[in-house]
């Protein structure tokens, strides 16, 4: 799935930090009775809707046939971009569980969005360095197992993507994959040093005017499509037969390779509802 993105700048932690700060500079300032923008996230694998279960339904670009048993993640820092260069957003983090039974978690609202012509929306897939620390997020039963364990530096997984795949060298055999992403603890750099991983995503939108005086009763909707297959392609093909599928949490090269692929998972379109 090819989509227009302006994201690869996100690969350096320094660049990520700068972007996050600049976005905050023009963030929400005081109450404003603007429009509500509803962000609806839908999950697909290539051309198919995502079904979270144990059935081998999908194939990635490397030819691995696989299932998606679990997809849970954090998204944060949603920011609307206007044609005059201004932005409006929220630093809030949201937990999403892609299982159909948890579909209510796929809808996120941005309130009081000011009038203007929207040209794009950005978000952090995952949690920025400030948020990805122990205790920064509400501790709920649903999210308790998103924690990144203490010996690995603490904080949170920003994604758990799990399932099984067919080992072509051993027909009929299913092996597990656990694409778990988060910060890399590097004790050699100091007791508390963590190499943070998260992904800045910018999604172009066809210029659309938001006018709270004329906004429909339910507000506006931006539909974000999340293609799971793109974790394993574009630009780097990730072949389960050649690269680690398990125990990737401490692997810096794998974590960073996934960060390269992550931005292409997302596209967005505007809808008036």
């Amino acid at each position: 799935m090819k989509i227009s993105l302006q994201t690869l700048f996100a690969l350096s932690p320094l660049a990520v930090l700068v972007v996050a700060i600049s976005a905050c500079d023009e963030d929400i300032t005081g109450p404003f009775e603007g429009s509500t923008v509803n962000l609806e996230i839908s999950h697909v694998v290539g051309t198919a809707d995502l079904v979270v279960d144990d059935v081998i339904r999908y194939a990635n670009v490397a030819g691995n046939n696989y299932s998606v048993k679990d997809l849970r993640y954090y998204v944060s820092n949603f920011t609307v971009h206007f044609d005059d260069g201004s932005t409006y957003g929220s630093s809030a983090a949201h937990f999403v569980d892609a299982r159909a039974s948890r579909s209510e978690t796929h809808s996120i609202q941005l309130e009081n969005v000011p009038d203007g012509t929207v040209v794009g929306i950005s978000m952090v897939y995952g949690l920025d360095a400030e948020t990805n620390v122990d205790g920064a997020l509400p501790n709920t039963l649903d999210t308790a197992d998103m924690e990144w364990p203490p010996p690995m530096g603490g904080g949170y997984h920003y994604m758990k993507l799990e399932g099984r795949w067919e080992d072509s060298g051993n027909p009929g055999s299913l092996l597990g994959y656990t694409t778990h992403t988060g910060a890399r603890f590097m004790p050699s750099m100091g007791d508390t040093y963590r190499h943070h991983h998260f992904i800045n995503v910018y999604m172009d939108l066809v210029d659309t005017a938001i006018d709270h005086g004329e906004s429909p009763e339910e507000g506006y909707e931006i539909r974000i499509t999340y293609d799971v297959n793109d974790w394993y392609e574009d630009p780097v093909t990730y072949d389960f037969e050649a690269l680690p599928q398990q125990m990737v949490m401490p692997l810096l090269d794998v974590q960073e390779q996934l960060m390269v692929n992550g931005p292409s998972c997302f596209s967005a379109s505007f809808a008036t509802v």
């Binding site: 501790n139 039963l141 308790a144 197992d145 924690e147 364990p149 203490p150 010996p151 690995m152 656990t178 778990h180 398990q246 125990m247 949490m249 401490p250």
Partner: peptide
């Protein structure tokens, strides 16, 4: 044992987290 439990070596923690000791899944 703690380090093995809470890393992917023994990989117990993914289902048995540090607080409740279970995901309840």
């Amino acid at each position: 044992g703690f380090v093995q439990f809470f890393t992917e070596k023994a990989d117990c923690f993914h289902c048995h987290g540090p607080k409740l000791g279970t995901t309840h899944r």
